[in-house]
Amino acid sequence: MDDFQRRISADSTIGITSTSTSPSTPTPVTEAVLPGIVEPDGIQVRTRPARPAGPGQVVLAMEAAGISFAEQQMRRGKYYDQPPFPFVPGYDLVGRAVEAGEGVHGGLLGRRFAVLTKTGAWASHVTVDAGDLTEVPDAVDSADAETFVVNGITAWQMLHRLAKVRPGHTVLVHGANGGVGSTLVQLARIAGAQVVGTASAKHHDAVRALGAVPVDYRAPDMDAQLRAHAPQGYDAVFDHVGGEGIVASYRLLAAKGTLVSYGSASTRDVEGSSKAPVLKLLARLALWNALPSGKGAHFYNIWAGRRRLATFRAKLHSDLAQVLALLADGRLIPQVAARIPLTEVGKAVRLAESGTVVGKVVLVP
Protein backbone atom coordinates (compact mmCIF):
# COMPACT_ATOMS: atom_id res chain seq x y z
CA MET A 1 0.00 0.00 0.00
CA ASP A 2 1.45 3.38 -0.99
CA ASP A 3 1.47 6.52 1.19
CA PHE A 4 -1.59 7.97 -0.52
CA GLN A 5 -3.63 4.84 0.14
CA ARG A 6 -2.50 4.77 3.78
CA ARG A 7 -3.76 8.34 4.20
CA ILE A 8 -7.14 7.43 2.74
CA SER A 9 -7.42 4.38 5.00
CA ALA A 10 -6.35 6.26 8.10
CA ASP A 11 -8.67 9.16 7.44
CA SER A 12 -11.59 6.84 6.77
CA THR A 13 -10.98 5.03 10.04
CA ILE A 14 -11.35 8.17 12.13
CA GLY A 15 -14.36 9.32 10.12
CA ILE A 16 -13.02 12.59 8.70
CA THR A 17 -15.64 13.91 6.33
CA SER A 18 -15.77 16.56 3.68
CA THR A 19 -18.40 18.19 1.54
CA SER A 20 -18.49 19.23 -2.07
CA THR A 21 -16.65 22.27 -3.32
CA SER A 22 -19.42 22.57 -5.93
CA PRO A 23 -22.03 25.35 -5.69
CA SER A 24 -25.34 24.63 -3.93
CA THR A 25 -26.90 23.95 -7.33
CA PRO A 26 -24.58 21.33 -8.91
CA THR A 27 -23.71 21.59 -12.58
CA PRO A 28 -25.63 18.95 -14.58
CA VAL A 29 -23.56 15.98 -15.66
CA THR A 30 -22.92 15.49 -19.38
CA GLU A 31 -22.43 11.86 -20.40
CA ALA A 32 -22.20 9.70 -23.52
CA VAL A 33 -24.69 6.82 -23.54
CA LEU A 34 -24.64 3.64 -25.59
CA PRO A 35 -28.36 3.03 -26.18
CA GLY A 36 -27.79 -0.29 -27.92
CA ILE A 37 -25.80 -1.72 -30.82
CA VAL A 38 -25.31 1.42 -32.90
CA GLU A 39 -22.86 3.07 -35.25
CA PRO A 40 -20.54 5.65 -33.63
CA ASP A 41 -22.91 8.49 -34.57
CA GLY A 42 -25.66 6.69 -32.65
CA ILE A 43 -23.92 7.23 -29.31
CA GLN A 44 -26.09 9.74 -27.45
CA VAL A 45 -24.87 12.75 -25.46
CA ARG A 46 -27.22 13.46 -22.58
CA THR A 47 -27.34 15.55 -19.43
CA ARG A 48 -28.65 14.48 -16.04
CA PRO A 49 -28.73 15.95 -12.54
CA ALA A 50 -25.57 15.51 -10.49
CA ARG A 51 -25.63 12.91 -7.72
CA PRO A 52 -23.79 13.49 -4.43
CA ALA A 53 -20.82 11.36 -3.47
CA GLY A 54 -21.73 8.52 -1.12
CA PRO A 55 -19.69 7.26 1.84
CA GLY A 56 -16.13 6.47 0.78
CA GLN A 57 -16.66 8.01 -2.66
CA VAL A 58 -15.14 10.88 -4.62
CA VAL A 59 -16.56 12.82 -7.57
CA LEU A 60 -13.97 13.51 -10.26
CA ALA A 61 -14.38 16.26 -12.85
CA MET A 62 -13.14 14.44 -15.94
CA GLU A 63 -10.13 16.00 -17.67
CA ALA A 64 -9.38 13.09 -20.00
CA ALA A 65 -11.08 9.76 -20.74
CA GLY A 66 -9.84 7.19 -23.22
CA ILE A 67 -11.35 5.20 -26.05
CA SER A 68 -10.03 1.65 -25.82
CA PHE A 69 -10.67 -1.51 -27.79
CA ALA A 70 -13.04 -2.59 -25.02
CA GLU A 71 -15.49 0.20 -25.87
CA GLN A 72 -15.26 -0.67 -29.54
CA GLN A 73 -16.42 -4.17 -28.62
CA MET A 74 -19.12 -2.83 -26.28
CA ARG A 75 -20.58 -0.74 -29.11
CA ARG A 76 -21.12 -3.99 -31.00
CA GLY A 77 -22.41 -5.87 -27.94
CA LYS A 78 -19.26 -8.02 -28.11
CA TYR A 79 -17.45 -7.27 -24.84
CA TYR A 80 -17.34 -10.36 -22.66
CA ASP A 81 -19.14 -9.03 -19.56
CA GLN A 82 -20.52 -5.63 -20.53
CA PRO A 83 -23.66 -4.38 -18.75
CA PRO A 84 -27.05 -4.38 -20.49
CA PHE A 85 -27.89 -1.42 -22.72
CA PRO A 86 -28.24 1.50 -22.19
CA PHE A 87 -25.09 2.41 -20.26
CA VAL A 88 -22.26 4.93 -20.18
CA PRO A 89 -18.98 3.43 -21.51
CA GLY A 90 -15.52 4.54 -20.50
CA TYR A 91 -12.83 2.23 -19.16
CA ASP A 92 -10.61 4.80 -17.45
CA LEU A 93 -10.10 8.49 -16.84
CA VAL A 94 -8.01 11.22 -15.28
CA GLY A 95 -9.93 13.81 -13.31
CA ARG A 96 -9.78 16.33 -10.51
CA ALA A 97 -11.55 15.63 -7.21
CA VAL A 98 -14.38 18.13 -6.66
CA GLU A 99 -16.43 16.36 -4.00
CA ALA A 100 -15.65 13.84 -1.28
CA GLY A 101 -18.21 11.77 0.57
CA GLU A 102 -18.40 10.78 4.20
CA GLY A 103 -15.23 9.14 5.50
CA VAL A 104 -12.98 10.59 2.80
CA HIS A 105 -10.35 13.19 3.65
CA GLY A 106 -11.09 16.66 2.31
CA GLY A 107 -7.41 17.02 1.38
CA LEU A 108 -8.13 15.06 -1.80
CA LEU A 109 -10.16 17.92 -3.21
CA GLY A 110 -8.51 19.78 -6.07
CA ARG A 111 -6.00 17.02 -6.76
CA ARG A 112 -5.80 14.92 -9.94
CA PHE A 113 -6.24 11.18 -9.97
CA ALA A 114 -6.32 8.30 -12.42
CA VAL A 115 -8.84 5.52 -12.03
CA LEU A 116 -10.03 2.37 -13.79
CA THR A 117 -13.81 2.32 -14.12
CA LYS A 118 -14.57 -0.35 -16.78
CA THR A 119 -17.71 1.66 -17.61
CA GLY A 120 -18.92 5.16 -16.79
CA ALA A 121 -15.88 7.31 -17.60
CA TRP A 122 -17.35 9.03 -20.65
CA ALA A 123 -18.93 11.74 -18.53
CA SER A 124 -18.11 15.23 -17.31
CA HIS A 125 -18.27 14.06 -13.67
CA VAL A 126 -17.69 10.51 -12.46
CA THR A 127 -18.25 9.07 -8.99
CA VAL A 128 -15.69 6.47 -7.89
CA ASP A 129 -14.51 4.74 -4.72
CA ALA A 130 -11.67 6.66 -3.08
CA GLY A 131 -9.71 3.43 -2.69
CA ASP A 132 -9.46 3.08 -6.47
CA LEU A 133 -7.64 6.40 -6.99
CA THR A 134 -4.00 6.75 -8.00
CA GLU A 135 -2.57 10.26 -7.88
CA VAL A 136 -1.19 11.78 -11.08
CA PRO A 137 2.14 13.66 -10.82
CA ASP A 138 1.77 17.42 -11.11
CA ALA A 139 4.20 17.64 -14.03
CA VAL A 140 2.14 15.30 -16.23
CA ASP A 141 -0.55 16.48 -18.65
CA SER A 142 -3.94 14.85 -18.02
CA ALA A 143 -4.39 13.52 -21.57
CA ASP A 144 -0.84 12.18 -21.59
CA ALA A 145 -1.45 10.44 -18.27
CA GLU A 146 -4.74 9.01 -19.53
CA THR A 147 -2.99 7.12 -22.31
CA PHE A 148 -1.11 5.16 -19.64
CA VAL A 149 -3.94 4.23 -17.26
CA VAL A 150 -5.53 1.04 -18.61
CA ASN A 151 -2.78 0.76 -21.25
CA GLY A 152 0.00 1.24 -18.72
CA ILE A 153 -1.38 -1.15 -16.13
CA THR A 154 -2.08 -3.75 -18.81
CA ALA A 155 1.37 -3.49 -20.40
CA TRP A 156 3.25 -3.39 -17.10
CA GLN A 157 1.48 -6.39 -15.62
CA MET A 158 1.74 -8.49 -18.76
CA LEU A 159 5.41 -7.64 -19.15
CA HIS A 160 6.56 -7.97 -15.54
CA ARG A 161 4.00 -10.05 -13.68
CA LEU A 162 3.23 -12.63 -16.38
CA ALA A 163 6.04 -12.79 -18.95
CA LYS A 164 8.75 -11.59 -16.52
CA VAL A 165 10.73 -10.01 -19.34
CA ARG A 166 14.40 -9.40 -18.51
CA PRO A 167 17.39 -7.69 -20.18
CA GLY A 168 18.52 -9.65 -23.22
CA HIS A 169 15.10 -11.12 -24.00
CA THR A 170 13.56 -10.77 -27.44
CA VAL A 171 9.84 -10.07 -27.48
CA LEU A 172 7.17 -9.76 -30.14
CA VAL A 173 4.38 -7.18 -29.82
CA HIS A 174 1.46 -7.50 -32.20
CA GLY A 175 -0.26 -4.19 -32.96
CA ALA A 176 2.79 -2.21 -31.90
CA ASN A 177 1.23 1.08 -33.05
CA GLY A 178 -1.83 0.75 -30.80
CA GLY A 179 -2.40 2.07 -27.30
CA VAL A 180 -1.33 -1.04 -25.39
CA GLY A 181 1.12 -2.07 -28.10
CA SER A 182 3.06 1.18 -28.14
CA THR A 183 3.22 1.09 -24.32
CA LEU A 184 4.45 -2.50 -24.37
CA VAL A 185 7.21 -1.58 -26.83
CA GLN A 186 8.44 1.26 -24.65
CA LEU A 187 8.30 -0.63 -21.36
CA ALA A 188 10.01 -3.65 -22.90
CA ARG A 189 12.83 -1.45 -24.20
CA ILE A 190 13.18 0.17 -20.78
CA ALA A 191 13.41 -3.35 -19.32
CA GLY A 192 16.34 -4.09 -21.63
CA ALA A 193 14.58 -6.31 -24.16
CA GLN A 194 14.85 -6.31 -27.93
CA VAL A 195 11.44 -5.75 -29.53
CA VAL A 196 9.87 -6.72 -32.84
CA GLY A 197 6.47 -5.17 -33.52
CA THR A 198 3.83 -5.86 -36.14
CA ALA A 199 1.94 -2.95 -37.68
CA SER A 200 0.77 -1.78 -41.08
CA ALA A 201 3.50 -0.30 -43.26
CA LYS A 202 2.26 3.27 -42.80
CA HIS A 203 2.99 3.03 -39.06
CA HIS A 204 6.49 1.58 -39.35
CA ASP A 205 8.29 4.87 -38.79
CA ALA A 206 6.33 5.43 -35.58
CA VAL A 207 7.05 1.89 -34.36
CA ARG A 208 10.72 2.27 -35.22
CA ALA A 209 10.86 5.57 -33.32
CA LEU A 210 9.64 3.74 -30.19
CA GLY A 211 12.56 1.34 -30.43
CA ALA A 212 11.06 -1.71 -32.14
CA VAL A 213 11.83 -3.45 -35.42
CA PRO A 214 8.63 -3.18 -37.50
CA VAL A 215 7.13 -6.00 -39.57
CA ASP A 216 4.11 -5.55 -41.82
CA TYR A 217 1.28 -7.76 -40.54
CA ARG A 218 -0.21 -7.77 -44.05
CA ALA A 219 2.94 -9.21 -45.64
CA PRO A 220 2.36 -12.71 -47.07
CA ASP A 221 5.67 -13.84 -45.56
CA MET A 222 5.09 -12.23 -42.16
CA ASP A 223 5.79 -15.42 -40.21
CA ALA A 224 9.06 -15.95 -42.07
CA GLN A 225 10.12 -12.38 -41.34
CA LEU A 226 9.25 -12.77 -37.67
CA ARG A 227 11.26 -15.99 -37.44
CA ALA A 228 14.23 -14.34 -39.11
CA HIS A 229 14.35 -11.73 -36.33
CA ALA A 230 14.33 -14.43 -33.61
CA PRO A 231 15.69 -17.71 -35.03
CA GLN A 232 15.55 -19.38 -31.60
CA GLY A 233 12.06 -18.08 -30.94
CA TYR A 234 10.71 -15.22 -28.86
CA ASP A 235 10.98 -15.12 -25.09
CA ALA A 236 7.56 -13.47 -24.99
CA VAL A 237 4.78 -12.82 -27.51
CA PHE A 238 1.97 -10.37 -26.73
CA ASP A 239 -1.14 -11.04 -28.83
CA HIS A 240 -4.34 -8.98 -28.85
CA VAL A 241 -5.60 -10.47 -32.09
CA GLY A 242 -6.83 -13.89 -30.95
CA GLY A 243 -8.72 -16.08 -33.38
CA GLU A 244 -6.72 -18.60 -35.40
CA GLY A 245 -3.71 -16.26 -35.42
CA ILE A 246 -3.01 -17.20 -31.81
CA VAL A 247 -1.65 -20.53 -33.06
CA ALA A 248 1.08 -18.76 -35.05
CA SER A 249 1.95 -16.66 -31.99
CA TYR A 250 2.39 -19.78 -29.87
CA ARG A 251 4.60 -21.43 -32.49
CA LEU A 252 6.91 -18.39 -32.51
CA LEU A 253 7.85 -18.92 -28.87
CA ALA A 254 11.29 -20.01 -27.74
CA ALA A 255 11.63 -23.29 -25.84
CA LYS A 256 10.66 -21.66 -22.54
CA GLY A 257 8.88 -18.63 -23.92
CA THR A 258 5.62 -17.10 -22.72
CA LEU A 259 2.56 -16.20 -24.76
CA VAL A 260 0.31 -13.52 -23.30
CA SER A 261 -3.06 -13.13 -24.99
CA TYR A 262 -5.12 -10.10 -24.05
CA GLY A 263 -7.90 -9.81 -26.59
CA SER A 264 -9.65 -11.11 -29.66
CA ALA A 265 -9.54 -8.22 -32.10
CA SER A 266 -9.91 -10.55 -35.07
CA THR A 267 -13.42 -11.52 -33.92
CA ARG A 268 -14.64 -7.95 -33.21
CA ASP A 269 -17.03 -7.90 -36.17
CA VAL A 270 -17.97 -11.59 -36.16
CA GLU A 271 -21.67 -12.22 -35.64
CA GLY A 272 -22.84 -14.39 -32.77
CA SER A 273 -22.04 -14.83 -29.09
CA SER A 274 -19.65 -12.37 -27.47
CA LYS A 275 -18.47 -15.10 -25.10
CA ALA A 276 -17.71 -17.84 -27.64
CA PRO A 277 -14.41 -16.41 -29.02
CA VAL A 278 -13.04 -15.81 -25.52
CA LEU A 279 -14.08 -19.25 -24.25
CA LYS A 280 -12.48 -20.89 -27.29
CA LEU A 281 -9.31 -18.89 -26.69
CA LEU A 282 -9.20 -19.84 -23.00
CA ALA A 283 -9.68 -23.52 -23.86
CA ARG A 284 -6.82 -23.39 -26.35
CA LEU A 285 -4.48 -21.74 -23.83
CA ALA A 286 -5.39 -24.31 -21.18
CA LEU A 287 -4.62 -27.11 -23.61
CA TRP A 288 -1.20 -25.66 -24.40
CA ASN A 289 -0.40 -25.28 -20.72
CA ALA A 290 -1.20 -28.96 -20.22
CA LEU A 291 1.49 -29.94 -22.73
CA PRO A 292 5.02 -30.77 -21.47
CA SER A 293 6.56 -28.17 -23.78
CA GLY A 294 8.04 -25.77 -21.24
CA LYS A 295 6.16 -22.89 -22.85
CA GLY A 296 3.65 -20.78 -20.96
CA ALA A 297 0.34 -19.43 -22.23
CA HIS A 298 -1.73 -16.85 -20.36
CA PHE A 299 -4.86 -14.82 -20.88
CA TYR A 300 -4.55 -11.40 -19.27
CA ASN A 301 -7.61 -9.92 -17.58
CA ILE A 302 -6.99 -6.63 -15.82
CA TRP A 303 -9.85 -7.36 -13.38
CA ALA A 304 -8.59 -10.79 -12.31
CA GLY A 305 -8.11 -10.96 -8.56
CA ARG A 306 -10.53 -8.17 -7.69
CA ARG A 307 -12.29 -10.47 -5.23
CA ARG A 308 -9.23 -9.96 -3.04
CA LEU A 309 -9.76 -6.23 -3.22
CA ALA A 310 -6.93 -5.01 -1.00
CA THR A 311 -4.31 -7.07 -2.87
CA PHE A 312 -5.80 -6.11 -6.25
CA ARG A 313 -5.68 -2.41 -5.42
CA ALA A 314 -2.16 -2.60 -3.98
CA LYS A 315 -0.81 -4.15 -7.21
CA LEU A 316 -2.73 -1.74 -9.39
CA HIS A 317 -1.56 1.35 -7.49
CA SER A 318 2.04 0.12 -7.40
CA ASP A 319 2.16 -0.72 -11.11
CA LEU A 320 0.40 2.43 -12.31
CA ALA A 321 2.53 4.62 -10.04
CA GLN A 322 5.69 3.17 -11.62
CA VAL A 323 4.34 3.81 -15.11
CA LEU A 324 3.35 7.39 -14.30
CA ALA A 325 6.75 8.01 -12.72
CA LEU A 326 8.42 6.91 -15.97
CA LEU A 327 6.13 9.29 -17.83
CA ALA A 328 6.97 12.17 -15.47
CA ASP A 329 10.69 11.44 -15.94
CA GLY A 330 10.34 11.62 -19.72
CA ARG A 331 11.24 7.95 -20.24
CA LEU A 332 7.80 7.11 -21.64
CA ILE A 333 6.49 9.01 -24.64
CA PRO A 334 2.69 9.44 -24.63
CA GLN A 335 0.94 8.45 -27.82
CA VAL A 336 -2.08 10.80 -27.96
CA ALA A 337 -3.67 10.30 -31.37
CA ALA A 338 -6.24 13.07 -30.88
CA ARG A 339 -8.05 15.08 -28.19
CA ILE A 340 -11.74 15.37 -28.99
CA PRO A 341 -14.52 16.95 -26.88
CA LEU A 342 -16.90 14.59 -25.10
CA THR A 343 -19.79 16.18 -27.01
CA GLU A 344 -18.22 14.88 -30.25
CA VAL A 345 -17.91 11.31 -28.99
CA GLY A 346 -19.22 9.79 -32.23
CA LYS A 347 -16.43 11.44 -34.21
CA ALA A 348 -13.89 10.28 -31.62
CA VAL A 349 -15.04 6.65 -31.71
CA ARG A 350 -15.05 6.60 -35.49
CA LEU A 351 -11.46 7.86 -35.53
CA ALA A 352 -10.36 5.36 -32.89
CA GLU A 353 -11.83 2.51 -34.94
CA SER A 354 -10.42 3.73 -38.26
CA GLY A 355 -7.05 2.03 -38.00
CA THR A 356 -5.36 5.23 -39.15
CA VAL A 357 -3.97 6.46 -35.83
CA VAL A 358 -0.96 5.77 -33.65
CA GLY A 359 -1.75 5.67 -29.96
CA LYS A 360 -5.00 6.54 -28.23
CA VAL A 361 -7.91 8.85 -28.96
CA VAL A 362 -8.73 10.83 -25.82
CA LEU A 363 -12.02 12.50 -24.88
CA VAL A 364 -11.71 15.86 -23.10
CA PRO A 365 -14.34 18.14 -21.49
Rank of each mutant, 00 (worst) to 15 (best):
E244L: 11
L159H: 00
A265T: 14
L287M: 13
R331H: 12
A325Q: 12
A219W: 02
P55C: 04
V336M: 08
E135T: 08
T356Q: 15
P231H: 06
R96G: 07
L187E: 05
A283Q: 12
K256L: 10
G192R: 09
S200E: 08
L326V: 07
V345S: 03
A286M: 10
V364I: 15
V136Q: 00
T267N: 11
R306P: 06
L351Y: 05
R7M: 14
H229N: 11
K78G: 06
H298P: 09
A50Y: 01
E39I: 14
R161N: 14
A206M: 12
Y217T: 07
D11I: 07
V196F: 04
M74D: 05
R308P: 04
G211I: 11
H105K: 10
K78M: 15
R166A: 14
T27D: 13
L162V: 10
A337T: 04
K275E: 13
A193Q: 02
A348W: 00
G77C: 08
T117C: 13
F238I: 01
H298Q: 11
V140Q: 00
P365A: 05
K315R: 15
V357H: 13
G54N: 03
R251P: 08
R51L: 15
G257Y: 00
H204N: 05
V270T: 15
V361H: 03
H125E: 14
V149S: 01
P341N: 07
L281H: 02
S12A: 14
E63V: 09
L210Y: 09
A53E: 06
D138K: 07
D221C: 08
D216A: 10
R6S: 09
R75V: 10
G263T: 01
G197L: 04
Q72K: 14
A297I: 04
P277H: 02
V38E: 02
G106P: 11
G103H: 01
T25D: 14
T343S: 14
G245K: 06
H169K: 03
F4K: 03
A70K: 12
G179Y: 02
Y234L: 05
H317N: 04
G175E: 02
G242I: 04
V247R: 14
A310K: 11
H204T: 02
R251D: 15
G66N: 05
T343K: 14
Q82M: 15
F148Y: 11
A209L: 12
Q186R: 07
R189W: 04
D11N: 14
A191Y: 02
R189Q: 06
Y217R: 12
A228P: 10
M222S: 11
V59I: 15
I37G: 06
